[in-house]
Amino acid sequence: PEEVRRLVEELYRKGVSPEQVKKILKKQGIDEREIEKVLRRIG
C-alpha cells in the first residue's frame, strides 16, 4: 500500500538500515511482507 511505501522511503532516506526499517514498522503492526516488497523495489 501507498502508506507503507511512504513510511519505508522516509526511514530509508534518513539512513535507517533495511533491518531497522523492518523492525520499526513491524512494531507499528505493518505486515513484514509488505515492508520487504517495498525495500526490494527501493534497494
Rank of each mutant, 00 (worst) to 15 (best):
Pro1Gly: 09
Pro1Met: 12
Glu2Cys: 08
Glu2Ser: 11
Glu2Gly: 09
Glu2Leu: 13
Glu2Thr: 09
Glu3Ala: 11
Glu3Gln: 10
Glu3Pro: 07
Val4Asn: 02
Val4Lys: 01
Arg5Ala: 14
Arg6Lys: 09
Arg6Thr: 07
Leu7Val: 06
Leu7Asn: 02
Leu7Arg: 09
Leu7Thr: 04
Val8Tyr: 02
Val8His: 01
Val8Met: 03
Val8Ala: 06
Glu9Gln: 11
Glu9Ala: 08
Glu9Asn: 06
Glu9Trp: 15
Glu9Ser: 06
Glu10Ser: 12
Glu10Tyr: 14
Glu10Lys: 12
Leu11Glu: 01
Leu11Pro: 00
Leu11Ser: 01
Tyr12Ala: 04
Tyr12Pro: 00
Arg13Trp: 13
Lys14Phe: 07
Lys14Thr: 08
Lys14Pro: 02
Lys14Leu: 13
Lys14Ala: 14
Gly15Phe: 04
Gly15Tyr: 03
Gly15Met: 04
Gly15Asp: 03
Gly15Val: 01
Val16Ala: 12
Ser17Trp: 05
Ser17Asp: 09
Ser17Lys: 09
Pro18Leu: 10
Pro18Lys: 12
Pro18Thr: 14
Glu19Gln: 11
Glu19Pro: 07
Glu19Leu: 12
Glu19Gly: 10
Val21Leu: 11
Val21Met: 10
Val21Gln: 01
Val21Cys: 04
Val21Asn: 00
Lys22Thr: 11
Lys22Leu: 15
Lys22Phe: 14
Lys22Asn: 03
Lys23Ala: 14
Lys23Leu: 14
Lys23Val: 13
Ile24Phe: 09
Leu25Gly: 01
Leu25Pro: 00
Leu25Glu: 00
Lys26Gln: 09
Lys26Gly: 10
Lys26Asp: 03
Lys26Ile: 14
Lys27Cys: 07
Lys27Asn: 10
Gln28Met: 14
Gln28Val: 10
Gln28Ile: 13
Gly29Glu: 02
Gly29Arg: 03
Ile30Ala: 03
Ile30Leu: 12
Asp31His: 06
Asp31Ile: 03
Arg33Ile: 09
Arg33Trp: 08
Arg33Gly: 11
Arg33Val: 10
Arg33Asn: 13
Arg33Pro: 03
Glu34Tyr: 04
Glu34His: 04
Glu34Arg: 04
Glu34Thr: 14
Glu34Met: 11
Glu34Ile: 14
Ile35Asp: 00
Ile35Val: 07
Ile35Thr: 03
Ile35Pro: 00
Glu36Leu: 05
Glu36Pro: 00
Glu36Ile: 05
Glu36Asp: 11
Val38Ile: 12
Val38Leu: 12
Val38Glu: 13
Val38Tyr: 07
Val38Ala: 12
Leu39Ala: 02
Leu39Phe: 03
Leu39Arg: 01
Leu39Glu: 01
Arg40Ile: 12
Arg40Trp: 06
Arg40Phe: 06
Arg40Cys: 04
Arg41Glu: 15
Arg41Trp: 15
Arg41Ile: 15
Arg41Tyr: 15
Arg41Asp: 15
Ile42Asp: 03
Ile42Tyr: 07
Ile42Thr: 04
Ile42Lys: 05
Gly43Lys: 11
